[in-house]
Write a protein that binds this DNA or RNA. Structure first.
Length: 400
RNA sequence: GGGGAGUUGCCCGAGCGGCCAAUGGGAGCAGACUGUAAAUCUGCCGGCGGAAGCCUACGUAGGUUCGAAUCCUUCACUCCCCA
């Protein structure tokens, strides 16, 4: 592939890139680049948001470069202040290692294991001596750190900033030094951290890494950055129907953005949808179906994507109810007597956390059995084989 | 080290010694309308109880009062200003 084409490919969907001519030179030298991507294992799932950056990393691998994946098991215990308006809770090392394993398990669904070296940054940060640490800290100024948006905002709002949070960017920057990165990838919120890596490297007499940042993916709520703690995320391991459904629930305004960032649809195809949407010549729903289908195909294959589409249309568009639903056992004690206590049923099957809220669900007409809306707390008929529906999304088939 | 302000439910935030399970907003859940979209409208939104009511809650621990989220003291934490 010609160098210009390579650069064009790599630059796609990125928001920030420094420095193009530097990267071009590095690529042209023919050497295999060390492409750094660091993730802090603060949660167990891999979201589509992370996938954006991982797929960028995969593109580098496909061009023959080497992925240096940093598992920030040490930095996760500090907590990245990026984009946060308050101090993150600190994790224990047990939590971190559980998350790390879980994340590593999933990540190779996207990137190529053979072209990846995994590093744990506790390896060098965990055993650092205090005098080394202080020497390192002397290379970063307080003004530089306080300059960042997250901190200056908090300062202005009289919110606390702990000292350990200010150390975070430096630790991450030091990772780049340790692994001698040629380029670091990241989400848009990593601007400060990654640039500090570049600076630190050159201060230590190395050639500073390039920095390439991807768009942040907005979550299914259409407002916030996708994140596990906010619950507005899609996991790359979500089952096909869930993934499809979640994609269908995003606001229309995000369709094109998601096509670009989460699927493998070609730019031409996306542009076609974009024009069609702009000129109102397509029902946005259909564009969204194309998006959802492409997404499921990427992680589950073509067959599953068609099944998921069918399931979605049958269940929701045609309101027929799902063709196949999970079966759930009705607890023995509910089967005793002549009347079935639906409140207890909802609680024991996990549809409600308390009897009170189960009652409220029934009162608001959210619960139905075989399509019949419940109006009382008890049910006198047979339950076996019937479909229980709670709200719009939750179904199960009852068995005795 | 000194002076001042503050800590309320998932989050923000009001709160008069009794009428406070606590105003309001956001989030969430449900219903209507839809395209499981958005927007909008409606209801719910600590627990137990089909209801009366009871229990647990306003940073912690005590106290004053017939009665406290509201007053006093202790401790903890946060912010500001001055060293």
């Amino acid at each position: 592939m010609k160098i210009e084409d390579q650069l064009r490919l790599l630059k796609r969907n990125t928001t920030y890139f420094v420095d193009e001519s530097e990267l071009k030179e590095k690529i042209q030298s023919g050497k295999q680049l060390r492409v750094k991507l660091g993730v802090d294992p603060t949660a167990s799932d891999v979201t589509l948001g992370w996938a954006v950056v991982f797929r960028k990393l995969k593109e580098f691998q496909d061009l023959g470069h080497h992925a240096c994946l940093i598992i920030g098991d040490f930095t996760a215990q500090i907590g990245d202040p990026s984009g946060k308006s308050k101090t993150r809770p600190q994790l224990t090392s047990e939590q971190v290692s559980t998350y790390a394993n879980s994340v590593l398990d999933k990540i190779f669904k996207i990137i190529d294991k053979d072209k990846t070296t995994v590093y744990f940054n506790s390896e060098w940060l965990g055993s650092m001596k205090l005098d080394d640490f202080i020497r390192l800290a002397s290379k970063v100024t307080v003004a530089r750190i306080l300059e960042r948006d997250d901190f200056s905002k908090r300062l202005k709002e009289e919110k606390p900033i702990s000292l350990h949070e200010m150390i975070y960017p430096m630790c991450q920057a030091y990772d780049s030094v340790k692994i001698n990165a040629d380029i670091e990838l990241g989400g848009n919120d990593q601007l400060f951290n990654n640039l500090l890596g570049r600076t630190l490297m050159s201060q230590m007499g190395m050639s500073g890494q390039c920095v390439m940042l991807s768009h942040l993916l907005v979550g299914t709520d259409g407002k916030e950055k996708m994140s596990q703690s906010l619950g507005n995320y899609v996991s790359i391991c979500d089952d096909p129907n869930t993934m499809f459904g979640k994609a269908m629930s995003i606001p229309d305004s995000l369709i094109i953005n998601w096509m670009e960032l989460t699927t493998v649809m070609s730019q031409e195809e996306i542009d076609t949808y974009k024009n069609a949407l702009n000129s109102n010549s397509i029902n946005p729903r259909d564009a969204k179906i194309a998006l959802a289908k492409s997404l499921v195909m990427l992680y589950h294959g073509k067959g599953q994507s068609l099944t998921a589409e069918e399931y979605f249309i049958n269940t929701f568009s045609a309101k027929k109810g799902p063709t196949e639903v999970e079966e759930k056992q009705v607890p023995q004690e509910i089967l005793e007597g002549s009347e079935r206590d639906i409140i207890a049923l909802l609680v024991s099957l996990g549809f409600s956390s308390s009897r009170g809220s189960a009652k409220r669900l029934i009162e608001s007409g959210a619960v139905s059995i075989d399509g019949e809306k419940l109006t009382t707390f008890n049910f006198s008929g047979e339950l076996d084989g019937k479909v229980l529906k709670v709200g719009k999304h939750r179904f199960c088939k009852l068995i005795n």
